[in-house]
Design a protein around this nucleic acid. Structure first.
Length: 223
DNA sequence: GACCAGGCACATC
DNA sequence: GATGTGCATGGT
């Protein structure tokens, strides 16, 4: 696990300079963020937007709405987001979890972060990235979200191996940054923007602005 | 037509 | 514990 404190800060500054503040997560309500977090699993956000638009059009994008809707109907609404049978079930399971344990998302928001994270990870269909996306963006908790782009981008720059354990990477960032949800949220957003543009699975990194000598030198980031 | 997208659960070794 | 596979639509 390589990298100085300033490395991580410089990475963020370089991306922020390039993209500006990203104002994530795009959604009207915390519940919509939770739904989006489930739908975007291994799926492009463009396709998720279509599914969300369908749910809004039918006025079912709420806890009670999704609790009431028939699974077969829900499947059709979220079809554009892919894996629709599986995701319809996961949405139903998530809503039941919220209702059975807290009655509402507002009540759920009163639970402390560690407990809430453990609870979410026990829900079928919610893994570490989905849980942390909800914690950070829907509940405003300072939890760093690690996704495929984070692994790819930072491993390609030598910070850690691409298949390093999720929580090790999460704690790597959390230990080097002030525990602020606003910063974590924008940092993750910057990573995704950079990833989409310059860090796709097979893409070479030659075009990436992060490779400019101004930022990168002798295998480590310069201040 | 191949490859990929803001993962996760489950089977198998 | 590591590795492989199914899930599925839509954009490049």
């Amino acid at each position: 696990m390589k990298g100085k404190v300033s490395d991580i800060a410089d990475m963020y500054n370089a991306m922020y300079d390039y993209f500006g503040h990203r104002r994530w997560w795009p959604a009207d309500t915390p519940f919509e963020i939770c739904v989006g977090a489930l739908l975007t699993q291994n799926t492009s956000w463009k396709n998720v937007e279509k599914a969300i638009a369908n749910m809004k059009k039918k006025k079912v994008l709420s806890l009670n709405g999704l609790l009431s809707i028939k699974v077969a109907v829900l499947r059709e609404l979220i079809k554009p987001s892919g894996f629709y049978a599986q995701k319809a079930e996961r949405l139903k399971i998530f809503c039941s979890f919220v209702y059975d344990n807290f009655k509402s998302l507002e009540n759920m928001a009163r639970v402390d972060t560690d407990t809430l994270r453990k609870n979410l990870l026990d829900v079928k269909g919610i893994g570490p990235e989905t849980a942390d996306s909800m914690l950070l963006y829907a509940f405003g908790r300072p939890v760093f979200v690690v996704d495929a782009y984070t692994r790819r981008l930072f491993s390609r720059h030598g910070f850690f191996d691409e298949k390093t354990d999720y929580d090790i990477i999460r704690m790597f960032f959390e230990s080097k940054l002030p525990a602020t949800a606003g910063l974590y949220g924008d940092y993750h957003a910057q990573i995704v923007e950079t990833g989409k543009m310059f860090c796709r699975k097979k893409a070479l990194c030659g075009e990436c602005f992060l490779n400019r000598k101004k930022y990168f030198k002798n295998d480590s980031w310069i201040a």
